[in-house]
Amino acid sequence: MQKIKKDDTVKIITGKDKDKTGKVLSVDVKKNKVTVEGCNMITKHVKPNAANQQGGIIHVEAPLDLSNVMLVVDGKATRVGFKTEGDKKVRFAKATGKTID
């Protein structure tokens, strides 16, 4: 089980986009990378193709390291812990003790 999942709201804690918040678009578990909406934007040069006939320069989100983001629960950045409720393993916010899912 992973601490950050797709569609979670996260806060960036280091780097050029420090203190920005956004929704997680994708998580790469093998590489420990996470892509956040509107953060870590890069300029990419693309050739014309069937999907993009014009080609040119586009701005896209690049993956961040998982250690550079914190989960936001109730507007507050928090660490994530795990506990078992019955026979299910669930995430909880360490700052508030609230169960996330």
Rank of each mutant, 00 (worst) to 15 (best):
V46Q: 08
L64D: 05
A51T: 09
T14W: 02
V34R: 06
D8A: 06
K20H: 07
G22Y: 02
Q54Y: 11
I57D: 08
S67V: 09
K31I: 08
G38Q: 08
D7N: 15
K47V: 12
I100P: 04
I42A: 12
K83C: 15
V72Y: 07
A50Q: 11
E85A: 08
D8E: 06
K5S: 03
T14M: 05
V10L: 08
G97A: 04
D65M: 07
M70N: 05
K23H: 04
H59C: 08
E85Q: 15
K18W: 01
M1Q: 07
G97F: 00
D74S: 01
A77E: 07
K3L: 13
V34Y: 07
K23W: 05
L66S: 12
K6L: 02
A50R: 10
N49F: 07
G75R: 00
D87I: 13
D65W: 07
C39K: 04
M70G: 02
G81Q: 10
T96N: 01
G22K: 01
A93H: 00
K30S: 15
V34S: 06
T96I: 04
K3D: 13
K98V: 00
D87R: 12
T21K: 05
T43P: 03
T21R: 02
K33C: 10
K47E: 15
L64T: 05
L64W: 03
S67K: 08
F82G: 09
K94T: 10
T84W: 11
V80G: 04
V60Q: 10
K94Y: 05
K31S: 13
T43I: 14
I57P: 06
T14C: 02
V60K: 12
Q54H: 12
T21Y: 03
S26V: 00
I4M: 04
S26C: 04
H45N: 15
Q2Y: 11
Q54E: 14
G81S: 14
K94I: 08
V60M: 12
T84I: 15
T78R: 03
G22V: 02
N68R: 02
V80D: 02
K31F: 11
A62Q: 13
D17Q: 06
D74P: 00
A51F: 10
K6P: 01
G15H: 05
I13R: 03
V80H: 05
L64F: 08
E85V: 15
N52I: 10
H59E: 14
G22F: 02
A62E: 15
K31C: 08
D87F: 11
C39F: 00
D65G: 07
P48W: 04
K47C: 13
K20I: 00
A50D: 14
T99N: 05
A77W: 01
H45I: 15
M70H: 02
E85W: 09
D87A: 14
G86E: 10
A62G: 13
D101E: 10
N52P: 07
I58N: 10
